[in-house]
Design a protein around this nucleic acid. Sequence first.
DNA 1: GTCGTAGTACGACGGGCATCGTAGTATGGG
DNA 2: CCCATACTACGATGCCCGTCGTACTACGAC
Lengths: 106, 106
Amino acid sequence: MRVLDHPAVEDIRLESVLHALADPRRLEVVCFLANSDVEVPCSEIDLAVSKSTGTHHYRVLREAGVISQVYRGTAKLNSLRRADLDALFPGLLERVIAAATKQSRT
Amino acid sequence: MRVLDHPAVEDIRLESVLHALADPRRLEVVCFLANSDVEVPCSEIDLAVSKSTGTHHYRVLREAGVISQVYRGTAKLNSLRRADLDALFPGLLERVIAAATKQSRT
DNA sequence: GTCGTAGTACGACGGGCATCGTAGTATGGG
DNA sequence: CCCATACTACGATGCCCGTCGTACTACGAC
């Protein structure tokens, strides 16, 4: 079974989180995940970049502590680390998602 | 009189704001300004980088729409664009500052 | 005018990042 | 076992970013 490294909650750095969120593609992923209760495979989010670039963005998000990723079969399932982020930086993720949602409507 | 360009409220982009905040020095500036009601000259914030690097960071913050800068005499006064950011991205700045403050205490 | 203070402009440099293509590695299904 | 699917690893490329030093400009005080 393939396992992926995730930072512990106490190792999540604000700068890394903000950097991870400061990219349109990654923000897109985060918003997509925010609108889905279940875990989402990478292949379900169409990022309009090559697959290898996609892999890169998912890794940045995971290593920053923004998302969690687990393998199931050939798929890699993604979900937001809402609880962890909220414990560390209360309300931050929610406000970023709200801001991104608002901006994407204009 | 020297005048500086600031983006209009409607031109402020979330990605740029997040990118501007995703740097320790710039976050330091923002936190400093958040703790001060009055406008603060660049020279009052000790960034532990060279002056030219400091100038660079202030420009990034200004061009992203995070701070406002005006000249007064030889000084350049900085302040947060709280109202503008709050109108665009409600609560975002406050949550980032809270997160940065919390993290800096650990 | 001269001087000091505050910040700028510019060019350089090194590192990191987004991007890609190609080749490769799991995993599950027939 | 073979194949398709889903994602990865690796190397390359080009751009952007943080950093610096040096030379410069604006302003106020004397």
